[in-house]
Amino acid sequence: MILVTGSVVAREDSFDEVCRLSLEHVQRSRNEPGCISHAVHIDCEDPLRLVFVEQWADRAALMAHFAVPASRQFVRALQDLASAATTIELYDATRLDKL
């Protein structure tokens, strides 16, 4: 499984638009093949920062997600609305059912 975390810090004047675009992106992405989960959260320590947490079945599914034109458009739109550079981190993860 591939775990993806990412974030964007919106400007005060663009926060509502960043939220709208982020929710659209998350809802669309959940229907893509190989998407296990895809969510966006507001950071309680920085309410202008949105944090994305995604789980993908494998690297091929994630690469297909990155190739979707709407995904690329989403990233470009965020760059224009953010107060700082967006972040993204990818992890190869194995789920542990029991400790």
Rank of each mutant, 00 (worst) to 15 (best):
D58I: 06
Q79F: 08
F74V: 11
V4L: 09
S22K: 00
R20Q: 05
A67N: 13
T86M: 08
A60I: 07
R72Q: 15
I42T: 14
H65S: 13
W56K: 02
K98T: 14
E32H: 06
A57Q: 13
K98W: 14
Q73K: 15
V51E: 07
S71D: 07
G6K: 05
E24M: 10
T86R: 01
E32P: 02
A84I: 11
Q55R: 13
H65M: 08
T94H: 01
F66S: 06
F66W: 11
R95F: 12
R59E: 04
F66T: 11
P69G: 14
H25L: 05
R95Q: 13
W56E: 09
R49I: 02
L90M: 03
Q27P: 00
S22R: 01
L48G: 05
S7F: 01
A67P: 10
G34R: 01
R49C: 04
E17Q: 15
A67T: 12
H65Y: 02
S29I: 01
S22P: 04
A64S: 05
F74A: 15
A10H: 04
D97S: 14
H38L: 10
Q55S: 07
D97I: 00
A64G: 07
P33F: 12
D43I: 04
L81Q: 02
R11Q: 10
L90H: 10
R59D: 05
F66A: 15
R20V: 06
V40I: 13
R30L: 15
E89N: 13
M63I: 05
R30I: 10
S71H: 06
P69S: 08
V40A: 05
R28T: 04
L50C: 11
V4P: 02
C19P: 02
E12N: 09
T86W: 12
M1V: 00
R30C: 06
R49W: 11
Q73D: 13
D46Y: 04
L96S: 10
P69C: 09
M63R: 10
R20K: 15
A39H: 12
A70N: 15
F66D: 08
A61K: 04
M63G: 03
V75E: 10
N31R: 15
S22Q: 08
L50H: 05
D97R: 05
V53S: 04
H38C: 14
R20S: 12
M1K: 00
V26C: 07
S14P: 05
D43G: 08
F15R: 11
L3C: 07
V4R: 08
L23T: 07
F66K: 12
A70G: 08
